[in-house]
Design a protein around this nucleic acid. Structure first.
Length: 252
DNA sequence: GCGACAG
DNA sequence: ATCTTGTCGC
């Protein structure tokens, strides 16, 4: 039962994205980002939302903070939340950002010393229809460096799953190899990254806030034990675990 | 009508 | 997002 959001609301959302887009910082702003081995970086965060199968309103919002470079879990927060906005491609942030932001604020209030220095977000940053995906939205509203990592390609601004794209993917030889996702305008919106030697399917990395594309790609690769960077993988795993324990056999 | 559609 | 066991390969 989909109730199409009024086009007036979508228009309002579009103008809000346009307004916040101006605040995105696409350059490295932190000292550790300039270091070849990221010395000075001690904590990386990951956020995600998980749902119970027959329910797209109640979800578990998750924030994890891992040590760098060891990837040991230093902090974990699981919180059941009630979503109000529907999922519409291009407007994912209006559905998820409020709860991810709340999780970051809880951490800042309770254990500020554990705040991460960068947050990995499950979704796109600048690689977006209007160059303002979830990672940018969370980055601007929180003021924290953010990196967007999507598991699937969003066909936008001329970037598509063409034969050429498939060829570029097959040309990625080893973990760390990447190729740019270039918009029709010529701007590099993000990069397809082979995150580990084993995974042939790339992840799509883009700038969220306060970090450059190349640094975002290099950092993402350095946080990958498997295809999905560890902070996001842990957030995903732990939020699902929370639902499994607190809502056993929900649905059927 | 057909294809696209981050999570 | 979620639906889901086994299976092929190293």
């Amino acid at each position: 039962m989909f109730v199409p959001p009024g086009e007036d609301l979508v228009n309002q959302w579009e103008s809000e994205q346009a307004r916040l887009r101006l605040q995105v910082m696409e350059e490295d702003t932190e000292d550790w980002q300039r270091s070849p081995d990221f010395s000075g970086l001690e904590r990386v965060g990951g956020v995600d939302l998980s749902f119970i199968k027959g329910d797209d309103v109640n979800a578990c919002a998750q924030l994890v903070v891992l040590s760098y470079p060891d990837m040991e879990v230093l902090y974990e927060d699981s919180q059941m939340v009630t979503l109000t906005a529907p999922y519409i491609a291009g407007f994912l942030a209006f559905r998820e950002t409020p709860f991810l932001l709340e999780a970051l604020q809880r951490l800042e209030r309770n254990q500020p010393k554990l705040l991460p220095q960068v947050v990995f977000v499950d979704g796109n940053g600048l690689f977006h229809y209007r160059e303002f995906g979830l990672a940018c939205h969370l980055g601007v509203l929180s003021g924290m460096p953010c990196v967007g990592v999507a598991k699937n390609l969003l066909q936008v601004q001329g970037v598509n799953k063409s034969e050429e794209h498939q060829l570029q993917i097959s040309a990625l030889q080893k973990g760390g190899d990447s190729f740019p996702l270039t918009a029709a305008s010529g701007k590099v919106l993000g990069k397809a990254l082979r995150s580990s030697d084993k995974s042939s399917k790339p992840v799509y990395v883009s700038v969220g806030h306060k970090i450059s594309v190349d640094t975002a790609v290099r950092l993402t690769h350095s946080c990958c034990h498997y295809r999905v960077p560890e902070p996001i993988r842990q957030a995903d795993y732990r939020s699902r675990e929370y639902l499994r324990i607190h809502f056993p056999g929900a649905d059927t």
